[in-house]
């Protein structure tokens, strides 16, 4: 479908390239020597067991946590220079939902960089934000306090905040966790729209069953890279076993998960 129509200009410089990235908390490395170059215009799932360092990878790339070694380039340049081209959707637990802001206010926060220091938010910014909320199907809830939204709706607000930045690369930390079916559909639709526009998304994902359905590429991660590449070639039982080890036994229908990928 839309994935074929990638604008050639984007493919020249990879949106994200990671070299020898190692991150350590305390004295123990959490992820080791990650080497990865993200292809442009693809939806990439980052998959791995709990504690594999999936979120760590994203946070280290965005310099939210210090890295022990390695370098990360966004569109061939350091993050500081390409910040405006990178959108970030954090985990839902990362903020205080009791905060006195409405859904619209949260989305407008994505525009603050464009608004600039000390300047007030103008009606046109609000309009942009409202449009982004409408894209994720949340226009009706724009003025509701964020605590009074359901988990899925909160996630969609976060997504809208990233969309409003009009970035070329999106990094999303578990957007599908604890959301309802409608939200899941909305997020997937948005992801496909983004891909159609030639944009790239790296999504931390934990639901193995939907990987083949939603994504083009996959990163299998368990402290180190197990495998990366297109879903068809990499998302195999063998690789999954390497990623999850004994824990894969718990996921009974591995063959079904993987089989779906090769057939579809």
């Amino acid at each position: 479908m839309a994935s074929e129509s990638i604008p050639p200009a984007v493919t020249v410089v990879p949106p994200l390239s990671i070299h020898d990235l190692t991150v350590a908390y305390q004295r123990k490395p959490v992820i080791w020597d990650i080497d990865y170059v993200a292809p442009a215009g693809k939806l990439v799932a980052i998959v791995g067991p709990n504690g594999a360092g999936k979120s760590t990878l994203i946070n280290a790339a965005l310099e939210l946590i210090p890295r022990a070694s390695g370098q990360v380039r966004f569109f061939g340049e350091p993050y500081q220079k390409q910040r405006h081209r990178v959108g970030y959707v954090p985990q839902r637990e990362s903020v205080d939902w009791d905060f006195p802001v409405s859904a619209l206010d949260v989305v407008v926060m994505g525009l603050y960089r464009k608004v600039g220091w000390c300047l007030p938010v103008l009606p046109r910014h609000r309009k942009t934000a409202l449009a982004a909320l409408a894209r994720v199907g949340m226009a009706d809830y724009a003025h509701r306090q964020i605590r009074r939204l359901s988990g899925g709706q909160q996630q969609r607000v976060f997504l809208a905040r990233a969309l409003v930045q009009d970035a070329d690369l999106y990094l999303m930390d578990e957007p599908f966790t604890g959301v309802d079916a409608a939200t899941e559909r909305a997020i997937v639709e948005i992801l496909r729209e983004l891909r159609a526009l030639g944009k790239t998304a790296l999504v931390v994902h934990h639901d193995l069953q939907t990987v083949t359905e939603y994504f083009d590429e996959v990163i299998l991660l368990n402290m180190r890279l197990v495998a990366t590449g297109s879903v068809e070639s990499v998302f195999t039982t063998d690789n999954l076993r390497k990623t999850y080890g004994g824990r894969l036994m718990l996921l009974e229908n591995t063959d079904r998960i993987v089989g779906k990928g090769t057939s579809g």
Partner: peptide
């Protein structure tokens, strides 16, 4: 008053603020 929106962002979501380059 001048830094109202910046402070608001800082209080609400520090991580996002720093990923945005504030």
């Amino acid at each position: 008053g001048l830094l109202f929106k910046e402070f608001g962002l800082l209080c609400f979501d520090e991580q996002f603020a720093s990923s945005q380059g504030w």
